[in-house]
Design a protein around this nucleic acid. Sequence first.
RNA 1: GCUGCUGUAGCUCAGAGGUAGAGCACUCCCUUGGUAAGGGAGAGGUCGAGAGUUCAAUUCUCUCCAGCAGCACCA
Length: 659
Amino acid sequence: MSQISLTFPDGNARDFDAGVTPAEVAESISKSLSKKAISATVNGAHWDMQWPITSDSSIAINTMQDDEPALELIRHDLAHIMARAVQEIWPDVKVTIGPVRDNGWFYDFDRQEPFTPEDLGAIEKRMKEIINARDAVRTELWTRDQVRQYYTDSGEPYKVEILDRIPEGEDIRMYWHGEWMDLCRGPHLQHTGQVPADAFKLMNVSAAYFLGDNTRPMLQRIYGVAFKNRDDLKKYLTFLEEAEKRDHRKLGREMDLFHMQEEAPGQVFWHPNGWTVYTALQDYMRRKQRAGGYLEINTPQVVDRKLWEASGHWEKYQHHMFVVEVDESRDGENDDASAKNKDHTRINALKPMNCPCHVQVFNQGLKSYRDLPLRLAEFGSCARFEPSGALHGIMRVRGFTQDDAHIFCTEDQIQAECARFIDFLANVYQELGFPEFEIRFATRPEKRVGSDESWDYVEGALENAIKAVGREYTLEPGDGAFYGPKLDFYLTDAIGRVWQCGTFQVDPNLPERLGASFIGQDGDRHRPFMLHRACLGSFERFIGILIENWEGKLPFWLAPRQVVVASIVSEADDYVNEVVAELTKAGVRAEADTRNEKINYKVREHSVGKVPVILAIGHREVEERTVTVRRLGEKQTSVTSLAEIVSSLGKDATPPDLL
RNA sequence: GCUGCUGUAGCUCAGAGGUAGAGCACUCCCUUGGUAAGGGAGAGGUCGAGAGUUCAAUUCUCUCCAGCAGCACCA
């Protein structure tokens, strides 16, 4: 038998018989290592302890100390153990796939009856039994026919289909423990007992299409989470609770920011508090954009279908538009608005986006190259008929307002405009409390228009722009639009969740379709490029993110109710009103609370309402013309003179761009 | 849109085939109290909408609407 040389992480090499398995290698090193080992890394590939190594290789034996392989294996093995448990309890359930995901795994089953929470408990119990049985995990390469026979005999049509999707020439491997087999490329642990029995939890069951395809049957997906130990699991469950506490729908109600109701699904009724946040944010963005060289415009809501046909949106997206049919022959007096005189009906759509309207503004008058780059911004209210199942609080809605802008420019201005936008966005995110964000660069897709040379140029311009402002990006090859590449901006919130908000997209297509042009230096007409860009995305969604990020405790300048001045005794009422008046004069949103309630009660109520500052006024303060300051989240209070607090809160109330 | 679940007072939720209950919030009264709920009284509901079964439906059945979780979708 031929010999191969295996090189260990410490640089030492040893010879073994070809076909040696990591299990044998580990055994040759020490008994304890072979017991602890969970997998190997062979030439950088994650390698099962049972797989033979046939050529000279580098090798590292992994144990539970190695986070990445450990978590991968724990979760993947749990997927198998769960599927086995399910089939042991309900033998007629059909299995499909069960990949590792985020903090755990899921497995999709086909079963007539829905799984109940009690079922999950039973499955979990059976899983623990399987783990405690310490069943050896075995694997073998099978032929395609063997596997097909096996799954045909056992009545597993989904598995047969999955088998058929494995490309010709690839190894087909079966894994099993106990009586239970699964088609799987591995690797897996050495035995089921290597899975920590107290560090996983079945979370919920929901529906998912087979292979993610909405024309295929709906399956039941059971989600589980798993970690290396019980503490990590606990930490994760605490994180979930934390996220739940921040839910903007809950906080929106508690802080009286907005509500939604049946008659207007997916649309927001902003209350005074919420609208204060909204307008503060919008005023801020308006100033930033003005300073950033944008010209603000406003365009119509109800636009004839003709424009959407011209832009190409009607063809592709009409089912996602709110269509408004109007009988224009109505006399305007005793008409029935729903009556349709087909000969005089005009079909409009509520605008789902602003771009075509912006091109209309650009198209007015003759544009010169001297006008470029022309940056047209709009807080554009859009309506999209989102599928009912997509709606989510104010995060995903049917009526929303984008902080939209379109930059009309020449090809050689793209890079500078892109760099300029990244800086703009970075500054805004910073000021709004999101110092960290990630850029994802989506490049040319398979199906596209335009020459390779122009794609080369435009992609190069974006890449250079990112470099010019000293930032990194991750590449998403093939994810661009059919007409141009784009950048998506993902910010990270206070508990580490990432949200896509900003976008920057290069579009030579729409100017073409809608006939935009400018007169160049050469006196000829040229096509401008159009750069779509948004920083917040939509105000609705961004405010949702702000609420969740700050757990409702918005920065002072954004807080809807900034200060409550609370009386302790009613003799203080006049002075309370005076303090409120002074604060109001200084630009602070202050209100008086002179209700006949104890100070404890008022403090509690306004704390729950996330008011950042409570000023308490009793006899002492009236006498000394001071206030007692209590900041949200602090138990400590401090006494300050009226003049001082007015000036310091006045400063706090100033938006970051005006400091 | 799909699968499952849910819909009872402003909010959070209990309840039962014979037309409803709690806590908080609200209104009024007492209380002027020094930093996260002072006491008392009162008012408040076509039980998501429609249809069916029944002597009787908010309760059971069906349809619709909306919400929640996930999937699919997100120009």
